[in-house]
């Protein structure tokens, strides 16, 4: 059995709202652990638009997603929140008032007083190409990620895509696969030039194949793939023999397990009240893009406001009966002490 991590609050999602929630909760001495499915902080800012400028963050006339993330990390540093990446929260169980258990797909278990869902558009999951019949091969012949390389030893592997995941796994799996084919729709790659060079060397050495085209169909029986039907760039159709296909088409956001936690949902969003940003389950909050209420705007700045109000109620759950003195960071010596500036 894994060790249970006991904390005041678990924040699900390390996007801008989840990060700022660490700040607001920190000011009222609520300790946090933050869980995110990605391998780094930033959420959509990191995954969808790290280099794109954002123009509507108050007092920052222009800031990129990556810069905003690093500034938030700097801002919340004094509060020592712990981060758990590459983890999807799969279960949320209520044991009693302000006693929640959360489990992740990576085997982590948390016990917390409050839960803050700051999951944005949901969890980033691999995009599944809409190839007819692909579902029946998933998990047996079609895989969207590589968890254990050994599972691919001796297989006839077909990797589809032109980004870093596609190229990295082509290079890493080639030595153990029986055969390796990379299929991409064009002879240009988003992947790092160095990986592309390595791949081309393997092709030149006759160790793998690179084909141009797009998968249109799959052939096989009982969940075991025998070939992928491909439309080449000249319009001609051909088959590539394979028993293992790995499509890498990037990530998409899916609401995911949040839907199974017994919370009221409205059109895949979590309704909250606008005083505390609490869900239908007391002690479970939802802030940022994932929540909905009359007048909701999916703006980062709205999520920041929601985090501030959520923290007030989280304090009350952590300290029942205690009065929270409202203070400003400009003048309060106790807040400044927490921020490490005094």
């Amino acid at each position: 059995m894994s060790d249970v991590i006991t904390t005041d609050a678990v924040i699900i999602g390390a996007g801008p709202c989840g990060l700022f929630a660490v700040f607001e909760l920190g000011l009222v001495d609520v300790k946090c652990h933050v869980v995110d499915i990605l391998d780094r902080p930033g959420g959509q800012c990191a995954e969808l638009y790290p280099e794109k400028p954002i123009y509507d963050i108050p007092a920052l006339p222009i800031v990129t997603g990556a810069e905003l993330t690093s500034r938030l990390l700097e801002q919340i540093k004094p509060f020592g929140a712990e981060f758990h990446y590459n983890q999807m929260v799969t279960e949320l169980i209520k044991h009693g008032d302000n006693d929640f258990e959360l489990k992740t797909d990576g085997g982590l278990v948390f016990r917390s007083k409050v839960v803050v869902i700051a999951a944005g558009g949901g969890s980033f999951q691999p995009k599944k190409p809409p190839i007819p019949g692909i579902d029946s091969y998933e998990g047996t012949s079609v895989f969207y990620s590589v968890k254990k390389m050994e599972a691919f030893r001796g297989r006839d592997v077909l990797i589809v895509g032109g980004g870093d995941s596609a190229l990295d796994w082509t290079i890493n799996l080639q030595p153990i696969a029986k055969s390796m084919t990379l299929l991409h729709r064009r002879d240009d790659f988003r992947a790092a030039p160095d990986s592309v060079k390595k791949m081309r060397e393997l092709v030149a050495e006759g160790k793998m194949q690179f084909r141009l085209g797009q998968v249109t169909g799959l052939k096989g029986e009982a969940g075991v793939l025998s070939a992928a039907t491909v439309k080449g760039n000249d319009g001609a159709t051909f088959d590539i023999a394979t028993n293992t296909m790995l499509p890498f088409f990037g990530l998409t956001m899916k609401l995911g397990p949040v839907a199974e936690w017994g919370l009221n949902l409205h059109e895949n969003l979590v309704p909250v009240d606008t005083a505390k940003f609490e869900t239908s389950t007391p002690g479970v909050f939802a802030i940022g893009d994932i929540n909905t209420y009359p007048g909701k705007l999916k703006l980062i700045l709205s999520g920041f406001h929601e985090a501030a109000l959520m923290a007030q109620q989280a304090f009350k759950y952590k300290n029942p009966g205690e009065r929270l003195l409202f203070q400003y960071t400009t003048s309060s010596s106790s807040l400044q002490k927490k921020l490490g500036v005094n």
Binding site: K127, P130, G161, H184, R185, R186, F249
Partner: peptide, 11 residues
């Protein structure tokens, strides 16, 4: 845009 179209289906 050409890069992003790698993420689309049936380009």
């Amino acid at each position: 845009e050409e890069d992003m179209l790698d993420f689309a289906f049936d380009v």
